[in-house]
Design a protein around this nucleic acid. Structure first.
Length: 183
DNA sequence: TATGCGATTGCCT
DNA sequence: GGCAATCGCATAG
């Protein structure tokens, strides 16, 4: 079959647990939803948000400890036709996996993939030798202290077009979480 | 049991 | 560039 889609990850975010990371789903301890985060590493943590989007994480730390890496963006390097079919709303190829929910759609990862073992399932994570250069900064969409520079756990490849523009250029302070904001 | 909000996206102006 | 859509989960009562 040729509908396999591969992406080169260009943007990720790290999330810890154990009450040390205010921005993490696992901050307040284990719940039914975050159970996977406390499980075996190398498994997928997929969750549903905003009533319509799926985001994908990879569990990192050993069982009993919660941590995950959110896959935020990537460049489609194989199966781009399949990715286009899945992402009919995307206007350009660089939008195919630009953003966590888009990435999940482009890769065809459903919410039911939560808990999947990357070592045995049809989903794979391939480690490359090295990333030449990368930048770090505050995480996106995280309010409160967790979104501040105290937790600069977003990593991306500088200048890569698949990294969302406003996220790539963050010379300013975090917009949210700086006090009561009239919305 | 009830309520508020979120690790966002896409459409509208 | 700004905002509505949409619903499961976590927290409070």
């Amino acid at each position: 079959m040729h509908n396999e889609v591969r992406v080169r990850l260009t943007e990720v975010e790290a999330y810890m647990g154990d009450g040390e990371d205010p921005g993490s789903h696992a901050f307040r301890g284990q719940t039914p939803r975050t159970a996977v985060m406390f499980g075996e590493p190398g498994h997928l943590y997929a969750y549903f948000t905003y009533g319509m989007h799926v985001c994908v994480n990879v569990v990192c730390s050993p069982a009993g400890q919660a941590s995950a890496v959110l896959l935020r963006a990537g460049e489609v390097i194989e199966g781009i036709d399949s990715a286009r079919m899945r992402r009919l709303t995307s206007r350009s190829d660089r939008d195919l996996a630009q953003g966590p929910a888009r990435l999940a759609v482009a890769l065809g990862i459903p919410l039911s993939a939560n808990g999947t073992d990357l070592a045995t399932g049809s989903l794979r994570l391939e480690l490359q030798p090295a990333v030449p250069t990368f930048q770090t900064g505050p995480r996106t969409g995280v309010s409160g202290p967790g979104g501040s520079t105290d937790f600069s756990w977003r990593y991306w490849i500088p200048g890569d077009p698949t990294v969302s523009p406003y996220k790539a250029a963050v010379p300013r302070k975090p917009v949210r979480g700086a006090g009561p904001t009239p919305l």
